[in-house]
């Protein structure tokens, strides 16, 4: 039986050695020791966990993220509010503003103040905190894509094209699968540029 042990020893030994190499390097290059009065930590575009890398690879997204406040798009839109009332800047630049707690309280100081959800909002404000909304639509960093809302709105693309019919949603849901094919198809239809550099830079 001697040779089998020997074999096992070689296989195990080499694996352990490689692993040890990995671990030691990982530890050697950790963030420098820092005192409590300086900041620490490293920002990298790396995925935090294997799972998130995997999700990104397979393009998996939560379709209906849980929000801290059970906000109802339906109710607000039924009261004839516009998308741009709250999502300021969407027709001016790349991003849409997600309104902060002060903005909400602008109306809800007086409107529907007894609603338990609105009390939650008020509580946030009292704590001088903002509402930690969860992102619904986003592109993963590995998509390396820059999307600009404004030119799309100027071109007459309605919000529901990409975000679904918000009058029928409470908290926002990921109704439309915004993969690259979706973008390219529309660009081709409307005969606008499908050059990679239109979006990827």
């Amino acid at each position: 039986m001697g040779w089998q042990k020997w074999l096992l020893f070689i296989v195990a030994g080499s694996s352990v050695w490689v692993l040890a190499e990995v671990v030691s390097r990982a530890q050697a290059a950790g963030p420098t020791a820092s005192s409590q009065y300086v900041t620490s930590g490293v920002f990298t575009p790396a995925h935090a966990t294997a799972a998130s890398a995997f999700k990104d690879f397979l393009d998996l997204h939560p379709e209906h993220p849980v929000q801290p406040i059970a906000f109802t798009h339906t109710v607000h839109l039924a009261k004839r509010m516009q998308c741009t009332t709250c999502h300021v800047g969407v027709n001016r630049g790349p991003d849409a503003q997600i309104p902060n707690v002060t903005f909400c309280m602008g109306c809800h100081m007086v409107i529907d103040t007894n609603n338990p959800e609105i009390k939650k909002i008020a509580a946030y404000q009292a704590r001088r905190e903002d509402i930690p909304w969860a992102r619904v639509y986003n592109y993963s960093p590995s998509a390396h894509v820059r999307f600009n809302h404004a030119p799309h709105i100027r071109a007459g693309v309605v919000c529901s094209t990409c975000h679904g019919d918000m009058t029928k949603q409470t908290t926002a849901e990921r109704k439309v699968n915004l993969n690259m094919g979706f973008c390219v198809q529309c660009h081709k239809q409307k005969q606008v540029s499908v050059d990679c550099a239109t979006c990827h830079y």
Binding site: W3, I10, S14, S15, A26
Partner: peptide, 28 residues
Amino acid sequence: GRKYLVAVGLATSLVLAGMAAFGYQVYT
């Protein structure tokens, strides 16, 4: 034969080492 198994063992350990190295390369 025994020699055969030894040879396979050696080759396998090389392959495993290579796979570990590749895993490390993909990881970092």
